[in-house]
Simulated scan of single mutants.
Amino acid sequence: MVDARGYSCPMPVVMVQKEVSRSAPDQLEVLVDDRCAVENISRFAGHSGYAVEIREVADDEFSLLLTKLP
């Protein structure tokens, strides 16, 4: 899991990029509290072969589930 709450872009994307490069997970949960980060991480995930499921878990707090595409 990557907890990027409290960070503004581009840090959340950088954190996700590092985790994907380090461990190439089949699934990765990412927590963010910035709508811009949701968009940028979703874009990165799509370009990196991951599907993204976005859930709003609280006001302006989101959980993104990245799942590696076959």
Rank of each mutant, 00 (worst) to 15 (best):
D59I: 11
E39H: 14
F62S: 10
L28S: 05
C9I: 14
L31P: 00
Y7F: 10
D34L: 08
V38T: 10
A24E: 09
E19N: 00
M11S: 13
V13I: 13
Y50K: 01
Y50A: 02
S23N: 06
A45D: 04
Y7A: 05
E39A: 15
A58L: 12
M15K: 00
L65D: 01
Q17R: 10
K68T: 00
L69P: 08
G46F: 08
V2Q: 01
A37K: 06
V52H: 01
Y50I: 02
P25C: 00
L64T: 09
I54T: 14
V52T: 08
V2E: 02
L69C: 10
A51L: 10
V32E: 01
E61F: 11
R43D: 12
V57D: 04
G46S: 09
A58W: 10
D34W: 07
S42T: 11
P25T: 03
D34T: 08
R22V: 07
D3E: 05
S8P: 13
S48M: 06
F44W: 07
E56P: 11
A58K: 13
L66D: 02
H47G: 13
V30P: 03
L66S: 02
A24L: 07
P70E: 05
D26L: 07
L66C: 03
D60R: 15
P25E: 00
S63I: 13
P12Q: 06
F62N: 10
V57T: 08
A45V: 04
E56C: 12
R55W: 12
C36I: 15
L28W: 00
A45M: 04
V20K: 01
V13H: 11
F62R: 10
M11H: 14
L31C: 03
